[in-house]
Structure formats: structure tokens, C-alpha cells
Amino acid sequence: MDKDINIKVKVWRQNGPKEKGRFETYELKNISQGSSFLEMLDILNEQLVNDGKIPVAFDHDCREGICGMCSLYINGHPHGPDGEITTCQLHMRSFDEGDTITIEPWRSAGFPIIKDLVVDRTAFEKIMQAGGYVSVNTGGIPDANAIPIPRDKAELAMDAAACIGCGACVAACKNGSAMLFVAAKVSQLALLPQGKPEAARRAKSMVAKMDELGFGNCTNIGACEVECPKNISISNIARLNREFLKAKLKD
């Protein structure tokens, strides 16, 4: 049964990309365990505004676990202690009376801080723009049923396509690697016949862009898979490595 709890939150505050950051601790009384984690932050911000202070900036949008906008490193875990969900789906019943909750932004060289808990994830955009697509123009397309695709292939592609691009994998990785993100997109398109003609070019250019943007290497730790809110499997990284190697051997 949900009850009301009193907690403290230790929040990372940083005015801008170049400014020095620090933790600040706030007390919150009578937080319903039925409220979501972001609603708890809404309450904190309401409190701060009423006290004439600057509210905490954090990213969020759909609040139903699909847009990938929310982030937050909560008590040492991207998207918090509960599994298979994003921060916006996390509820306060995961916490107890008297807890102190530490809230930090994604920390990675690839994601510079914009303000407080908001980070800049444009690096993901650049990786996608480097090749995360099938090169087809609008129109003049053959009938959708012209190419049958085995159901298990389509399902595997869908598993990879479930990535929401939130960046938890990068935040979880001690090397700050974006391999799981890149692997998910490369895998989805490599598994489908539509993606085959450009598979080699795609794998090479996306990996090259990832390296260029300062993301680290993959050393098979597997933290990304554990923390991924959408259960993207690291077997996709193995597939990316194969695709990359195949492409390089052809050169």
C-alpha cells in the first residue's frame, strides 16, 4: 500500500556548460509513493519557485516511457533502481521514509551538460545522420508485400528498433561508449532486406562518426544492457562488430 514519505534529494546544480557544478540537498515532506519520480521533482520545483529560488532543470516529455527525453542518474543507476523502465515511469514506491536520493545528469564526454540535469545529446543526432537510414526517396515504392520478410527476422529487427535513444547505455558505460545505440540501429537495418544494399557503408560511417565524437570503446562489460530501459541486447553489438568487420574486409 502506498503511503506518504519524507525524503531528501541531493541534486546536481550547474548553471551552464562552462560553470562549476555542485550538489544541493533539499527536503521534501509527505511525498505520495503513488506519485512518479518526475512528479516528485515537479513538487520540488513548485517548492523552489514558491521560495523564490531557481527550479531544477531536467529533461522530460511524454512521461510514458517512449520518447527517450528523460534521463537522470538516480542513486548510481541511469533511470533509477527499478528495471526495464525510464525515469518517467519510476515511482516513489521504490523509495522509503527517510531516504536520501542522489540525482545526477548523464555523465559522459559525449554528452556535455547544458544546465543542471539537462545534457546535450546532439552527438546521437550526428551519428544517425551519418547513416542510420535506408536511402529511399518518398514515392515510387513497390507494394509493401513485394518482399516477404521471415517473421523471426522482422521480430529481431523490432527488438533492436525498440531503442528510444535516451543515452542510458552511454551513461552506464565506464568507457562512455555508444556502441549499444549504434548497434541497435545497424542491427535493425542489417536484419532487413531493405537495409542490405547499404549495410557496409552504414556500419562504417556510423562507427566512424561515433569515434570522431569522442565516445569510448566497448570492452564487453555489459552495463549498457543491464541499464537499458528497453532491454536492447548486447548481441546487437556482436552483430555490429560482424557487420563492421565484413565491411572493412571488403575494402
Binding site: 537510414y133 529511399v136 515504392i141 513497390p142 507494394d143 509493401a144 532487413l192 531493405q194
Partner: peptide, 9 residues
Amino acid sequence: DQCVAQGVP
């Protein structure tokens, strides 16, 4: 047709 060509699973 368009979506399938783009790789929508």
C-alpha cells in the same frame, strides 16, 4: 509501402 521501404518493422 513507404514505411516498409524505410525499414519499419
